[in-house]
């Protein structure tokens, strides 16, 4: 009896272990941020039949968004979310936007306007999803996220920057405003570089512009005096 019980318990544990392993491999790995695509267009064509209007919802410069207006962009992140109080730390979720009401109707820059203004979006014309993947967008620190620092260089950066290293991937795509208190806290090198250059610019121009103006004025007075004497 006892022997049978132990054998049954052992089998149950093995099955449970297999199920857990399956869950870990199969279920979590379906977080779509792991997909490897090089353009938003290819993504939509590859994964769903699209009208093409999705492209207009993507964060791109000088594009008209036909259905979504962004005139009242919310300043604070997730201020409208009923789940905001429940989910405070979103950086480790498999679906970082879990629980946000009307999420389906929003574009990325509705909540992340500053993130939509970096060099990658404005210069390289990248859309958010080209790096962050499709829905559900995993948090960047979620273990299986392609943007997790342990694999970001290989899964994301190297799509365009062939041969990107982990060191290269420590480039901060969504950096804080360089002169802000936030930058002082999170990116002090950028903060001090910014204020040093501002100091240099201000001192140089604050001295030389009035100096040049006064030289011009004095020479003009001298010239007028000469003309009068003549």
């Amino acid at each position: 009896m006892n022997e049978n019980y132990f054998r049954w318990r052992q089998r149950c544990l093995i099955v449970l272990f297999i199920l857990m392993l399956a869950e870990l491999i199969v279920v979590t790995s379906t977080v779509f941020s792991q997909e490897e695509v090089a353009s938003a267009i290819r993504r939509y064509k590859g994964y769903e039949s699209s009208t093409g209007y999705y492209e207009e919802f993507e964060v791109k410069p000088n594009r008209i968004r036909p259905f979504v207006g962004v005139s009242e962009v919310k300043k604070s992140v997730f201020s409208y979310s009923p789940a905001a109080s429940e989910v405070r730390v979103r950086t480790r979720l498999s679906d970082s936007h879990y629980g946000i009401r009307f999420y389906e109707n929003l574009s990325c820059q509705y909540c992340h306007p500053a993130e939509a203004m970096d060099i990658h979006t404005t210069r390289a014309n990248l859309s958010c999803r080209q790096c962050h993947g499709a829905e559900p967008i995993a948090s960047i620190e979620h273990y299986y996220s392609s943007l997790n620092p342990i694999r970001k260089h290989a899964y994301v950066c190297s799509k365009c920057h062939e041969g990107a290293s982990a060191s290269f991937a420590s480039y901060i795509v969504h950096e804080p405003a360089p002169g802000s208190p936030e930058a002082r806290k999170t990116f002090s090198e950028l903060y001090y570089a910014y204020w040093f250059m501002m100091f240099l610019l201000t001192v140089t121009l604050a001295f030389f512009i009035p100096h040049s103006f006064l030289v011009g004025l004095r020479e003009l007075i001298k010239q007028i005096g000469k003309w009068r004497n003549q």
Partner: peptide, 19 residues
């Protein structure tokens, strides 16, 4: 940038762009 990051961390590119 890739060559630079063989000798320095990637965030140095943020500072370089600003400078």
């Amino acid at each position: 940038p890739l060559w630079t990051c063989r000798f320095a961390p990637g965030w140095i590119l943020n500072v370089a762009a600003l400078l």
